[in-house]
């Protein structure tokens, strides 16, 4: 009988020896392995190669030739950052302990169209309301709301105050210029306060395999009315090129609503939700892994177009006016 126990010792040592087979050790942190790991993951999961007509194989040839095994961490970082820059995507970053790469060309090459000091002095003044991240002030019977980051959470109580004040106004201006995005749930909550009925505003699909066009099905994205009550009067949303990511989604939600106009410059884009990854040397990165299109099939990655195209006029700024806000007030008071 004891001999039978030997089977289990065989099984026991077999299981122990499986460790290397089931879980091979971590990949080497050498420069070439790090380069290949990043290139391959982007190759498999990035969502805009076809849309942006990027030849990622050519990028590999160009940059891999510059990798040497004895290159230092700073040189490797520079090389990888340059490679990722080719994606022309604000949702692409390489994060190390010493720097974070980025591509901010989506707003840097365009008019700023926003002057925070001017807004503070001339429109918010000294007695504006602060409801969480929402700064608001009544200007010529119009409620002006400034929201600087969708990363800052809006509570239901914050929103209730804004809706109540909106109901006593002739219309609402929501200023999301320079709002670089954040959490999509904040965008959905804010937009829901101005929706009369449930509406589809966009469709999104996610990478489902390594092929260039390997995506899951398009899935509708909807904005629904807020349960606590909505304001269905006129609303104007101000955007600029620095309105990015969740702010582009917010602009698209609002654009779909019949009582809303978008005014200013188009948003910067950021229609791909970023997925994260990490390299064998511990650096982390992210890049877009989804595509989102509006109801006409236009990629939100290219930005959301405004209904009224308007740039900030330096002469108006000299007079102490933000001509986008003035135009919005004028439209709402008509």
């Amino acid at each position: 009988m004891v001999k039978q126990g030997r089977y289990f010792w065989i099984l026991f040592f077999f299981l122990l020896s499986c460790e290397q087979w089931v879980l091979p050790t971590d990949p080497s942190p050498g420069a070439m392995e790090v380069f290949d790991s990043l290139w391959e993951d982007v190759n498999d999961r990035y969502s805009f190669f076809s849309h942006k007509d990027i030849d990622w194989d050519r990028v590999r040839e160009t940059y891999r030739a510059k990798v040497t095994e004895n290159m230092g961490q700073l040189d490797l970082y520079e090389l990888l950052a340059d490679m990722l820059f080719e994606l022309r995507d604000g949702h692409v970053n390489l994060s190390t302990g010493f720097n974070r790469s980025r591509n901010w060309e989506w707003y840097q090459e365009f008019p700023v169209n926003y002057d925070e000091n001017l807004i503070q002095q001339e429109y918010l003044g000294r007695d504006y309301w602060i409801s969480g991240p929402l700064l608001h002030q009544m200007v010529d019977e119009v409620l002006y709301v400034n929201y600087r980051s969708f990363g800052q959470r809006i509570s239901e109580a914050n929103l209730q105050v804004v809706v109540e004040r909106a109901r006593r106004s002739r219309g609402v201006i929501i200023d999301v210029r320079n709002n670089g995005g954040g959490n999509l749930s904040n965008a959905e909550l804010l937009a829901s306060a101005f929706a009369e009925e449930e509406l589809e505003y966009a469709r999104q699909r996610i990478k489902s395999g390594p092929g260039r066009e390997e995506f899951g099905p398009w899935e509708p994205m909807v904005v629904s009315p807020w349960d606590e009550g909505t304001f269905t009067g006129l609303v104007i949303v101000l955007t600029n090129r620095r309105s990015y990511s969740a702010t582009s989604f917010f602009a698209q939600m609002m654009k779909t609503l019949p009582n809303v106009l978008l005014l200013g410059d188009q948003t910067g884009g950021g229609g791909g939700t970023p997925v994260f990854g990490e390299l064998p040397n511990g650096w982390t990165y992210r890049f877009s892994a989804t595509q989102t299109v509006d109801l006409e099939g236009r990629q939100l990655e290219d930005g959301v177009l405004t209904d009224v195209r308007l740039d900030l006029d330096p002469a108006a700024v000299q007079r102490g006016e933000d001509n986008l806000i003035e135009a919005a007030i004028s439209l709402l008071r008509q």
């Binding site: 039978q4 939700t273 994260f276 990490e278 982390t284």
Partner: peptide, 22 residues
């Protein structure tokens, strides 16, 4: 804990196979 999006993953399996007891 380091990823802001797609930070949750799961799997489930139900299977049968031989077993041995000593």
């Amino acid at each position: 804990n380091g990823f802001s999006n797609y930070s949750l993953r799961y799997d489930y399996f139900t299977t049968v196979g031989p077993a041995l007891r000593y």
